[in-house]
Amino acid sequence: MTTPPEAPSGVIHDIGYRGYRGPRLGRGYATRSLFTQSLRAAFGLGRSAKSKVLPMLMLAALLLPAGVVVAVAVLNQADHLATDYPQYLSGVGLLFIEIFTAAQAPVLLSRDLRFHTVPLYFSRPITRGDYVRAKCAAMVCALLVVTVLPLLVLFLGAVLAGLDLGHQSAHFAFGLLAALLYSVVFAAVGLLLSAATPRRGFGVAAIMGVLVVSQAVAKVLYELAGGHYQAGDGAAAWVYLLSPAGLVDRLVNQVCGLTPEFLGTPGPLGTLAFAAAVPAIAAGAYGLLLRRYRKI
């Protein structure tokens, strides 16, 4: 029997490795973490200064006019604000809300696709449904922050200026409804489009294109159908079903009873259709997102 020239000298040291015995935080915790991280990412928090510029600029652009409106009301001792709450969002604020959606929805989804980090998420306990749910909730909450804050400034200003509290509270509630609907619809459009492309630039352009072009198209079609020659709720108003922003604007005006002054939906059937369109858009986008992430 031959002996090896040298006995093997390798040894295994016990370096005290121990398995993890602590609590497993599980699926819910992971989903909640993904939600908070995404919400912070929507405002560039915890990231470089460069990525904070745009969301913060849009937030400032939404808050500044509200501050001006309040200041004017206080200084002139007016008995009402220069703008109603829902009209603040659908007028001055609309473009900035749209830019915020277009710029930040791809931040939430496109980068994960581009750098192939989505499979890493799915190697954790969270499921595909959890991922979509967390991202959707984060986008809606980010948009709610952006839309509700200026309304809050308006409302607090109105209270400080000593305006009629009952009237202001009621219209503030209308504004909150508008904020919620805008957030849900815009988040649905934004996330659906940005999940389709791994490139941020294309995502931004596509979301902005859909939101702005649909608005312009609806406006032109409304005029073509003779909308200006009909009452505010004439049949021509049906074309606003084509535009996410116009849809929310008209629905809120109708439901909150602001119609003679601002334009509403076409008749009772139209109100139903407009009201059904919002959950339909949200549910449709959510379903398509789930389908998008089923195979990755």
Partner: peptide, 22 residues
């Protein structure tokens, strides 16, 4: 309004940045 005011800038934006920025 629709053509030169909205569609043309958006299309040019997508194309102009699409040729190099991507």
């Amino acid at each position: 309004t629709l053509g030169l005011g909205t569609l043309v800038p958006i299309l040019c934006l997508v194309v102009g940045t699409g040729v190099i920025a991507t």
